[in-house]
Amino acid sequence: MKNKDKTRPVINKERCKGCGLCINVCPMGSLTSPGEVNKKGLRYAILKNEDKCTGCGMCAVICPDCAIEMREREKKS
């Protein structure tokens, strides 16, 4: 599990259509919808619990809109 702590989903809020497939697929329950809408009026998803995320990428794979990319976590200063 070398990559375990390395990548996190980065969600493109404006590209997200709020379908909820990523929230449903996440085995760790670390994604959610805050109930807020983007410019298109769609309830986008966010990474709620970054610590629980294992970086598995299932959310990115199931996203129908290329709205999720797995990127290396930015180091907190």
Binding site: C19, G20, A60, P64, D65
Partner: peptide, 27 residues
């Protein structure tokens, strides 16, 4: 599995409804 937009896909939002399978299959 890939975790980013493929080169062969344009960087635009699709017109598909939320949860539509087309976007996924396109990717």
């Amino acid at each position: 599995p890939k975790f980013e937009k493929p080169r062969s896909m344009k960087d635009v939002a699709t017109h598909y409804c939320p949860g539509c399978g087309h976007g996924l299959i396109h990717r």
